[in-house]
């Protein structure tokens, strides 16, 4: 199906195969991650689901959480977080893992980054699909607000693109940056209302809400996906601004340092 659409688009761009190029880069990326193993692509689903079961056990059974439809509440937040974490990890290694291409062929640097994100987007779409399947077991009313979901994902993509552009450069200058990044994402993880009620952030820790660029996306995703209400437009605007600023910063930093970084690889 997707292939058909892409072929269709390509037909009207006879001179350029840019879309195909990004597509095949993303596909190879995705394949490398999942196809080598025996369960293959299913890992993209098993991983988050398994974590969800564990967290569900901890937070619902042991801590006796009061949130309604807790599993969907978690999953809707977790979807976004998984993408953010995986994509930033991918972004961190963009330069080293694509070195064989960068050094041997003329390639637009941005294409590499975009394709890396795209390969993670496949996984996100899988997970959203899984979310819909699970939600069939609950009485969830979907509203037209779900149309905001692509906008939120777009926001997430911009944010991750900007972050990748920056951290991929830093990780070459500082070889042990990945350890730091692991700790950072671990801390950031708990600053997102994935297992606890977002009201806590709204009431007491407003600063986290406004400084953490992922929290708002998670809350809004939940609003449109689970609660069927419109997104918090304040947060939406703030998050978009943050993402765009990070992206612009990333483009500037990346442009300035990319060729220097190649020399010390």
């Amino acid at each position: 199906m997707l292939k058909k659409i892409i072929n269709y688009i390509v037909k009207y761009l006879p001179e350029s195969n840019k879309i195909e190029r990004i597509w095949i880069l993303a596909k190879s990326n995705f394949r490398k991650r999942y196809y080598g193993s025996s369960l293959g692509i299913i890992w993209a689903l098993i991983n988050p689901l398994f974590l969800l079961v564990i967290y569900y056990f901890i937070f619902n059974v042991i801590f006796n959480n009061q949130i309604e439809n807790f599993i969907l509440y978690m999953f809707s937040g977790f979807l976004i977080w998984m993408f953010f974490e995986e994509a930033s990890k991918e972004g961190l290694n963009t330069i080293t893992s694509n070195r064989y291409l960068i050094e041997n062929i003329r390639i637009k640097k941005l294409d590499i980054y975009i394709s890396g994100l795209l390969s993670k987007l496949f996984a996100l779409i899988f997970n959203i699909f899984a979310y819909f399947l699970i939600s069939l077991f609950f009485k969830i009313q979907y509203s037209a607000n779900i149309l905001f979901l692509p906008i939120l994902i777009f926001n997430l993509l911009i944010l991750n693109l900007g972050i990748s552009l920056i951290i991929s450069i830093i990780s070459v200058y500082l070889k042990d940056f990945n350890h730091f990044w692991d700790l950072f994402t671990l801390a950031l993880f708990w600053l997102n209302p994935i297992f606890y009620s977002e009201l806590i952030l709204y009431q007491t820790y407003k600063i986290i809400l406004y400084l953490n660029p992922v929290a708002g996306i998670i809350i809004n995703t939940r609003n449109v996906l689970l609660n069927g209400v419109s997104p918090d437009f304040n947060l939406l605007v703030i998050n978009f601004c943050q993402a765009i600023i990070i992206l612009i910063l990333g483009l500037i930093i990346n442009k300035k340092h990319f060729s220097k970084v190649i020399e010390i690889l």
């Binding site: 390509v10 195969n17 195909e20 190029r21 095949i24 291409l101 062929i105 003329r106 390639i107």
Partner: peptide, 8 residues
Amino acid sequence: ASLLGLTF
């Protein structure tokens, strides 16, 4: 080949 600009 795709990176070299060939279509699929």
